[in-house]
Each structure stands twice: as structure tokens, then as C-alpha cells.
Amino acid sequence: MLWELMQMNNLDFLPKKKILSLFMTCGFPNIIQSKKIFDEILSHRPDIIEFGLPFSDPMADGPIIQRANELALKSDITTKKSLELINKLSKNKQSTSFVIMCYLNTIRKFGLNKFIKNIKNIVDGLIIVDLPFEEETEIKNLLTENNIHLIKLISPMTDRKRAKKILKNSKGFIYYISSTGITGSNKLDHREINNNVKSLKKISSTPVLVGFGVKSKQDVVAISKQTNADGVIIGSALIQKYFDLKMDFNKYLKSLKKFIQEVKI
């Protein structure tokens, strides 16, 4: 029977407050070390892990994630290998939600149906950065049939009317882009975030996570205390440390551990 095949989706059971989502590029800095990084991240049991699929032209990401993508691609990561890595990690996923963040071309080229078949019952949500509401119908239907949530992005430029359209039947969480910037840029404006998050909360009951520009424990605490957001997404800041430490992998793993402990508030 259908309900037996359908596993539950972890994103439907997110905690009420202080949700932590950690983003990391698959295959960064190379395939072997990437597994170690994800093992470390998973051992902290964040609510959500976002797996970035490397793309040669990540136009919505900043220079840090672009560099991570370049390194990963140099180590011959492919979509297939990324999915194998995610599959391996999922054996120990427990209540952590797995979300894939990618650009449309990678999964289109892989084959949409094949991709969904590969991630079914492993991945809970999908963020396709360059797939706006206007272009999503086909993919959204396919995902819904397979109990994978299509995560919606909302920017400060999205007006109320548009947000209503986008968030109709939204599931999982809402990815609120904190600045009109790219990942890892600009400073956070808590008042603007709070106003926008408040208005999103009136439209939808789906949890709102703030991403882009969340860099430190202070940012996480500030968003938790000064805004109505349900949690944060940290990405570039996790990767930045690798370059700060001059690509010394062992030092990086240690600093990653310390950083994640700090941001788990």
C-alpha cells in the first residue's frame, strides 16, 4: 500500500524555535575530506543539513561558495557521487532533515525523474536556487508525488502579493534571504528582517529561517532574540574557515567543531 512506501518527511517535525540549518558544498574540498566534514556536521545533530551540489556557474552564491564549488569540481565530484555521499550519510540521519540545494542545470542534465528516484526517502527537501515560482510547476508536482518538499525562497524585494502566491501550500521551511545580497555578503539589518519575517508569518504557518549573511554566534543570538524568525541557515561562514586556516584540513575540522558548538544555541 502507498502509505507503507511513503516514509515520513523529517521537515514536517522541525522544532518550534531556534532551528539550525547548516549548508555545506558536496565534494569540498575533495571527495574524501568532504565525507569527514559531513560526518562532523551530522554528529552535532543540526535540525537541517543542506547539501550543495557543485555547479560551475553559481550565480546566486558569493565568492566563498563559488570557490568551494571550484575546488569540489576539480576533485571530480559529479552529481552521482554527491548523491552517493548523501545516501551513505543518510544511514545515520535520524531526525535531521536532509535538504539538497542546487542549480537547475545540474539536476536537469542528470535527469529529473532519475534524480528524484535517487533521493526519494533520503532527502526531505530541495532548494533549486534558480527555479522561481513562475517556472516550478512541473518539478513541484513531481516532488509532491514523492513526498519531497520544494523549499521556497523569499527576498526583501518580494512584495506581499507575490509572497502570498509563492507560499501557497508551502512546506518544510521558508528560506528568507536576509539581505538583497548573495550568500555570505553584507551586514544584517535586524529591523528589516523582523518586519519582513513578521509579514511572512501572517501569510504562512511554515517556519521561517533566515539565511545569507549569518556569520557568527552573535548573529544567531541576535536573530533569535530580535526577530520572529524560527531559525537560521549558516553556509559561507562554515566554508570561509577553511580558507582562513590556509586550507589546513585538520585545523579546519577542529574549528568547524568549535564553531558548530557555538552556534547551537
Partner: peptide, 9 residues
């Protein structure tokens, strides 16, 4: 129009 939501509006 395959762009991030930041650009759509």
C-alpha cells in the same frame, strides 16, 4: 526566467 527570487521582482 531561471533566476533566484532576489532577481525575480
Amino acid at each position: 526566467m531561471y533566476v533566484a527570487e532576489t532577481l525575480m521582482p
